[in-house]
Every structure is written in structure tokens, then in C-alpha cells.
Amino acid sequence: MEHGDDANWLDRPGNVRRLYLGLWVIGALLVVADLVVHRHAEVGFDGWFAFYGAYGFFACVALVLAAKRLRRAVMRPEDYYDR
């Protein structure tokens, strides 16, 4: 342990992995709930099965990939304006 004296539950990699898998389980349950709960569609196509889950996942991946590209264009040294 790097910080032995105050290491806690989150410092163990196994637990972080458990959290991550737990998140997938919750996600899967929410998708299954889509079959049970009658969702009231707001614009029509959002009534599709698992629409919000899929949109949330892909929107965020697209956001991050686009932001990485943006970084290539706009990133400058920290003291750019102070020089």
C-alpha cells in the first residue's frame, strides 16, 4: 500500500472493480425495467427500448473523443497569456 496508514476501502483495486461491475449491473437492471415500466415518450423516438441508456453512453463517448480532438487544436502551455 502506498499510503499504508490511512488506506481505506477504495484503495483496494478489487473494490474499485466491484464498484465498476456493480454499475453495469444497475445499468442492466434499468434496461430491463424498460420492459416493465410504461415510459411516456416525449418526442416519439425516445420511447424506443433503452433509448436513454444508449444515448447517454454514446453521447458521452462521442463527447470525450471530440474533446480529445479539440485539445489538439486549442491546447497551449499554461503560461500562454502571461508570456
Binding site: 454499475l23 434499468l30 434496461v31 424498460d34 436513454y52 441508456g53 447517454g56 453512453f57 458521452c60
Partner: peptide, 14 residues
């Protein structure tokens, strides 16, 4: 439900 799906899957993406 729709909001939880949106958020949990955003967290999964992260």
C-alpha cells in the same frame, strides 16, 4: 427511469 438510465450509462461511459 429515463433519467436514471441516461445518468447511469453516462457514468458507465466515463
Amino acid at each position: 427511469l429515463s433519467q436514471l438510465q441516461l445518468l447511469i450509462f453516462s457514468a458507465l461511459a466515463f
